[in-house]
Amino acid sequence: MAVQNTTGSMVGYQRRLQDYFNYKNLFNIIGWGVLALVVLFVLVPAATNGNWQPFSIWSTWTFLLDGLWVTLQVAFYSVILSMIFGVILALGRLSNNPIISVPSVVFIEVVRALPSYLIIFYAFIGLPKIGVKLDAIWFAVIGLTIYTSAILAEVVRAGILSVEKGQLEAAYSLGLRPYQTLYLIVMPQALRRMVPSIVSQLITLTKDTSLAAIIALQELTRKGQQLYQFNGNILETMFIVGMIYFVVCYILSLISSKLEVKRPR
């Protein structure tokens, strides 16, 4: 530019002006402006309306936390059961015997392709027809276990396949039997690599427990529904319910990212 050739001080002055209004700063100013507008016109009105009043009463919270307890129970039982079945299915899929491996593959592929909601609902509707009488919580656990075990089976299989072949060869040449190789050499290494994926699946599972609300299980989402039908403040209630799930899931995802960093590469 012509200005640059006249005086040095002008150039410095212009540079500083340019720096101040460069595109980064402009983006930043626009960004914070948008954020301020959102806070001013969405968050402030949302936070100051009278619909939050029910949450100043302790019994509202105990009502919701009862639901959270059921949610956590469902998640806990489902994850334990689906870990067990997941390992069995993964070993079944890796088996050399087609009588074992074919049904495992079919089960895993079919269940993974279905909505978890369909499986829970089918368990709830279908099992009583063949004479199974249980509490609603167990139908939720059965449905979620079927779904999650198929997914964990794939995680476990990937973990087992990720163990280097040399490990197996070394184990066999040391004279270990196949099951000894599995329990002493392969599984300890595979499990360590699977931990982050398993925790991620646990997060999905925790969110999926909300689907049990549709089969009238008294868990967190169902309690939230009852609460807003009583108080007539759906957005606020569902926000609080969502935040409770958020806290649980966020703690799990923090654990997951911690474990991921520690994993040796």
């Binding site: 626009i30 960004g31 914070w32 969110k207 999926d208 689907l211 969502g242 799930y245 958020f246």
Partner: peptide, 22 residues
């Protein structure tokens, strides 16, 4: 962009960590 980044982070974290049904 600082402010929009905050919004984007809040959006992704909130929608990923709450159930779809809710």
């Amino acid at each position: 962009s600082g402010g929009l980044k905050v919004l984007a982070i809040v959006y992704t974290e909130f929608f990923r960590n709450t159930p779809f049904l809710v």
